[in-house]
Design a binder for these strands. Sequence first.
DNA 1: GCAATAACTTACTTAAAAGTACTATAGTTG
DNA 2: CAACTATAGTACTTTTAAGTAAGTTATTGC
Lengths: 92, 92
Amino acid sequence: MSLIGTKWKPLVLFHLLEGPLRSGVLQKKVPEISNKMFTQTVRELETYGLISRKVFPVVPPKVEYRLSARGKSLGPILQSLDQWGFEDCGLS
Amino acid sequence: MSLIGTKWKPLVLFHLLEGPLRSGVLQKKVPEISNKMFTQTVRELETYGLISRKVFPVVPPKVEYRLSARGKSLGPILQSLDQWGFEDCGLS
DNA sequence: GCAATAACTTACTTAAAAGTACTATAGTTG
DNA sequence: CAACTATAGTACTTTTAAGTAAGTTATTGC
């Protein structure tokens, strides 16, 4: 379960639950993430087949990320985790 | 969510879902874990209030771990994760 | 009195994750 | 033609997680 065994993957997946987002927007939803970790994270999620990456050949570049079917199947789990985090106060 | 953001915490919690276990038994359920990481993991889980630790003042020592109410509330999530891991093949 | 026991601890080392800072791309705008 | 854009890559450092190996405790049983 190296999907959740990182600081950022669950967060990124979580923000995609509501729908596809382009790279910049997604990254702004996770303000503390460094540029490097962001691309690294989405690349790994893509490798695992949890999200798909769609590149529009325009300038400046435009890239959109969306959950794959497999990624969507994580939805309930991510939401449970999120909810659990709120219910049971600050664990950090 | 530093509960799952580690290699061992989810595993240890998972094994406690079925009921309390004494230290040695729990550790054997996770054979690859090092001695140090085991105690460190249960200590942190205890600090987070997810498990409770019961010491029997006998020699040789006997210690039992059980999920707290809060730990139990993670049950469904842990099981979903476990199931998800099986369904969707090898992710490492 | 010395080994065995179960649970832990401590000091030290290695490996993995994350952060910082800088560079690349290629059209568009001024 | 230089600056700006959005996305990504790379080299290097720091931080954090995990592993190894040894030691501690207090009793029992030989």
